[in-house]
């Protein structure tokens, strides 16, 4: 028996919206500790990793670990039927489920929707992601980071991110010209302006902006985003989801030949 009830169902809708351009089908692994999901894009350049802790759910029960293979496109169609204020419950009684039940309830419990989504059997191609002690970590407004990526992607497909003790510089070079945006440490009490840099070692890494723009669809999940980098390592972009868990994106760097 597996049942997970999320009080703020809108969070689940936002998570699916944030990943639907990146991955087509995912395995959600349910266990006693909560839900986890890891999936790569078709080019194996980017990876999304979701962890939702059981104690972030209104009700959570998972008698034994199960894997739920879902088509993101079909999941989106079902979630469209859930209101932003609804609770969302996922449920199945089977051990090897062939479908997953969804219940959407409005606040007054006066409207209850029930859907059953057919499950897929997907081969799990998961990667072992080592716990990395990143040498450069940037905490900043997710809206601001999203804006920087959008603006710079009109000049080039590729952005170079260079960190130093007191600032992070986003540089682009394209056919029309070049540009850079430098953001300094800023302990402002206004969320949108605050920038925390923890730079043990400066890094200079290059990434494809089209993936960063896809990751930034998660901006509605958290007002802050963290960029975690070490030389010769994929970038890890993390959106923490209050009281529930986190949505992480990994992006392999580009190297100049």
């Amino acid at each position: 028996m597996f049942e997970a009830k999320l009080q703020q169902g809108v969070i689940f809708k936002k998570i699916v919206d944030a990943i639907k351009d990146l991955v087509k089908s995912v395995n959600i692994d349910a266990s006693t500790s909560g839900l986890s999901m890891q999936a790569m894009d078709s080019a194996h350049v980017a990876l999304v990793s979701l962890k939702l802790n059981e104690n972030g759910f209104k009700d959570y029960r998972c008698d034994r670990p199960i894997t739920l293979g879902l088509s993101i496109e079909n999941l989106s169609k079902i979630l469209k039927c859930a209101g932003n204020d609804d609770t969302i419950t996922l449920q199945t009684d089977e051990e090897e489920p062939s479908s997953l039940k969804f219940f959407f309830e409005n606040q007054q419990a006066s409207k209850i929707s029930e859907f059953s989504l057919n499950l897929m059997s997907l081969d799990s191609e998961s990667l072992g992601i080592p716990d990395t002690d990143y040498s450069s970590v940037i905490q900043m407004s997710s809206a601001e980071f999203s804006r920087i990526c959008k603006e710079l992607s009109s000049i080039s497909e590729t952005v170079e991110i260079e960190t130093s003790k007191e600032s992070v510089k986003f540089s682009v070079q394209g056919d029309i010209g070049a540009g850079s945006i430098t953001v300094k440490n800023n302990q402002s009490d206004k969320d949108v302006d605050r920038v925390d840099l923890q730079i043990d070692q400066p890094v200079k890494l290059t990434f494809a902006l089209r993936y960063l723009n896809m990751f930034n669809k998660a901006v509605s999940l958290s007002s802050t985003v963290s960029l975690n980098m070490s030389e010769e390592n994929p970038l890890m972009v993390e959106y923490k989801i209050d009281d529930l868990g986190s949505l992480r994106f990994y992006l392999a760097p580009k190297i100049s030949d």
């Binding site: 350049v45 990994y250 100049s256």
Partner: peptide, 14 residues
Amino acid sequence: RDIQKDLQSFFQNI
């Protein structure tokens, strides 16, 4: 020219 790496160059398949 920048060459896009893939994640398998950094993370092991498990």
